[in-house]
Design a protein around this nucleic acid. Structure first.
Length: 286
DNA sequence: ATATTAACTCGTCAGGGGTG
DNA sequence: CACCCCTGACGAGTTAATAT
């Protein structure tokens, strides 16, 4: 699957030229409404497309002539070059707005939406939030992990063979459940954590060969098994990364929505102020 | 009640960017 | 340059709303 084959590829290639895209949906919750500014990746629009019935492109800057040749893959690749990550954009956005009044207003407007800004600011840290889901495990005092009615025993295996270090301080441990299934479990975190079941032969992704070891954690892994485990680990990390990326994107959109609300408020206030001043001026003149 | 459709979530892949 | 992270794109599955 190549980016060029994607139906959005052409849209994406024109991405940098889009200066303002307004998503405007009457009768939709405020959460659904957003104004995406110039630095938003065009594919964000693709993402919003799913959540929103209509998308209005308010203003699109003229596309340069040399960009019209969509068959030129190299150019497209250049065009598709990355923009700052959501984390970077959020960092920029989290900087205070220049007019001091806005802060007061934002407090009032954001108090409706409570956690948005906190969540957005939290994104700057390498924080992973594990949600309590049906697939969630909890660590018991005796060192076992409970998922629903099942208990998963974590043996104290040597880190070299059963523990893998993933991004940051995330560590996953290879364990076997009572049902014989194998799991990668993030360890070293407090609170709830999600365990990832290693696919069995019936549900393995294509190209994966997973052999069972009989749950003997710490036994020297065989070659094919090692490759499969590496792949599984990579998938696990990517899964988490995708999850976090989506979370960040959500917060980013929320942040933009908040900013829109703040700026609209500010605009409204300034208009009223101007109106009042005009009236005052007219009264003095008259 | 069933079929259809839109919206949404999730996992995976691909590829660019950053870093040691 | 290899490795890892991040994120767009895609497909599959689920759910809720609507049509028949």
């Amino acid at each position: 699957m190549s980016e060029g084959s994607s139906p959005n590829a052409l849209e994406s290639s024109r991405g940098p030229s889009i200066s303002v895209v307004q998503v405007s949906i009457p009768n939709q919750p405020v959460q659904m409404q957003s104004v995406i500014q110039s630095h938003v990746q065009p594919s964000v629009i693709h993402a919003t497309r799913q959540t929103v019935p209509t998308i209005q492109v308010v203003r699109v800057a003229p596309v340069e002539d040399d960009m019209s040749d969509d068959s030129d893959g190299k150019k497209r690749r250049e065009i598709l070059s990355r923009r700052p990550s959501y984390r970077k954009i959020l960092n920029e956005l989290s900087s205070p707005v220049s007019v001091s009044r806005i802060d007061e207003e934002s407090n009032s407007s954001q108090s409706q939406d409570g956690e948005s800004e906190d969540a957005a600011s939290n994104l700057t840290a390498n924080s992973l939030h594990y949600q309590q889901t049906p697939g969630t495990f909890q660590i018991n005092a005796d060192g076992t992990m409970t998922q629903g009615l099942q208990t998963l025993t974590m043996t104290n295996a040597s880190p070299t063979s059963t523990t893998a270090v993933t991004a940051g301080a995330t560590i996953v441990q290879y364990a076997t459940g009572p049902d014989g299934q194998h799991y990668y479990i993030p360890v070293g975190n407090t609170g709830t954590m999600q365990a990832y079941q290693i696919a069995t032969s019936g549900t393995l992704p294509q190209g994966v060969v997973m052999t069972t070891t009989g749950g003997s954690i710490g036994s020297p892994p065989q070659l094919g098994e090692e490759a499969a485990r590496k792949r599984e680990l990579r998938l696990l990390k990517n899964r988490e990364a995708a999850r976090e990326c989506r979370h960040k994107k959500k917060e980013y959109v929320k942040c933009l929505e908040n900013r829109v609300a703040v700026l609209e408020n500010q605009n409204k206030t300034l208009i009223e102020e101007l109106k009042a001043l005009k009236e005052l001026y007219c009264q003095k003149e008259g």
